[in-house]
Design a protein around this nucleic acid. Structure first.
Lengths: 258, 258
DNA sequence: AGTCGCCACTCCTCTAGACATCTAGCCCTG
DNA sequence: CAGGGCTAGATGTCTAGAGGAGTGGCGACT
């Protein structure tokens, strides 16, 4: 692997030039996904710079999400994750599926093994943003259901749903296993038919906690999808806040025109 | 501003602890958007650490996109951009609007001043991914229309659409101004009625070029929306590839249930 | 009054070296 | 042969210090 030399006259700082060289090598395909980058020691020898300078160059690429470093092993060109195309939940609902059932259906199509862990259910005051969406008065309680979805054992999504306590009471929603059909089936059993829902999609960099839960490498953004479901009377009955690894998802929507 | 002291016994490294303190101050609202963080010198005095350690803490927050630094001035809590809720183009189409017209309609609702620049139209071979989506044989040409949308003069989105040359020919699509109703109206005038379209939403970190075009501060991801339109015969007639600043957008979808 | 230059303060880049921690392979021992 | 310990080499963290460059205010000079 022959990287060029530094241009000590120009105003582009050395650490950026080194990062440029490495980035170019990746883009030319000289460094394939999974390959190990030159070690810090090698960069120091090649470019005659201090250790921190070499590290800063690698840090640049890490921030761009092109490489991941593993202590004791080296720095590696990132493997592009197999991307799962996720149809909007609208279509899953046609089959009376939600939550894990929808996720499992997706798994069957895409060929990964689905699982869920860290399910927790509690009763609490909702965060202000959620309270507004649910159009609840202050001091109203909600049932909070949080869980994490995994594909082939790797976490890809966390979801937290909020349901007004007066709606959740008398159903199995507050149990860990909501039974076949998930919470929507439970709601409909109560005679509370769903009418429509909205989805809001945005993206941002993950918080430290989200990086931990989703085992994200630095530089991976997350997709935020907030779904609000309304019953026939127009009352919001559920807010579901999901955080998906952007490296693992493409959301797919399909519309009739006109 | 009183930040705590470092826990020199635990295994959480000092630079992370400092970052935690600053992050918490931002989340508690003690540091409002636009506020200046303590200077490097102040952090050094307060925590009794070396310069690089203080910088590393700030670097952590910069990577998360929470702060931006300006040489010679300081490090500032990032101003959240006014977020525009963007309804799916489906609804705009009800009013026979697309492209700039749809963007202008959104502007009227949200109260920003819309504009478009850098419009370019050319005829070229499509990139492989686009060729596949359009189900074109090799060597088929497409008409490429690229443009950039601005809100209040700040770039928020770039869009590139690809239309098979045989469809675009004989319409005004290859002109810079496609006239009222945009390309969809042009297509329908040709008797080529649209039937449905799909949207694929994903997110990632921007390339260097995208950072330039959209004037993104480091740490802002972009939302990628690829829309494919099909006519009544099921033939794909347009692929539109848009890159939106994630700081500026929330996509909104609305579905009837069932 | 206005302008220019200086200076304090800020972040940016780089150096040189220290110890910590993790990995993987090697070799020795039981 | 299995297991444990050692070690080389990798990244992680920290220190102490240097010069550079951009910003903004203040004071002196015109």
């Amino acid at each position: 692997m022959a990287f060029g030399a530094l241009d000590r006259t120009g105003d582009r700082p050395p650490y950026r030039q080194i990062a440029d060289h490495l980035r170019a090598a990746i883009e030319r395909g000289e460094l394939q996904p999974g390959d190990k980058l030159p070690s810090e020691a090698a960069l120091i020898r090649h470019y005659h710079v201090a250790r921190m300078t070499a590290r800063q160059a690698v840090q640049e690429l890490r921030g761009e999400g092109r490489v991941v470093s593993e202590q004791g092993r080296g720095v590696f060109v990132r493997q592009p994750l197999p991307v799962r195309r996720l149809a909007s939940e609208r279509f899953a609902r046609r089959h009376r599926e939600a939550g894990l059932a929808a996720f499992s259906a997706e798994a069957a199509k895409s060929g990964f093994t689905p699982s869920v862990d860290q399910i927790e259910v509690s009763r609490a005051l909702p965060p202000p943003e959620v309270r507004t969406r649910l159009r609840l008065p202050e001091e109203s309680f909600v049932v909070v259901r949080s869980r994490r979805y995994l594909a082939d054992g790797r976490p890809v999504e966390t979801a937290v749903s909020y349901i007004p306590a007066d709606i959740a009471d008398g159903t199995r929603i507050a149990e860990l296993d909501t039974g076949p059909g998930g919470i929507y089936a439970q709601l409909e059993e109560m005679g509370d038919a769903l009418d429509r829902f909205t989805e809001e999609v945005s993206a941002r960099m993950p918080t430290a906690a989200e990086r931990r839960w989703l085992d994200l490498s630095p530089g991976t953004p997350v997709i935020i999808l907030v779904r609000t479901a309304f019953d026939v009377s127009g009352r919001p009955v559920e807010v579901c806040d999901t955080v998906k690894s952007a490296a693992a998802y493409v959301l797919e929507y399909d519309f009739p025109a006109g």
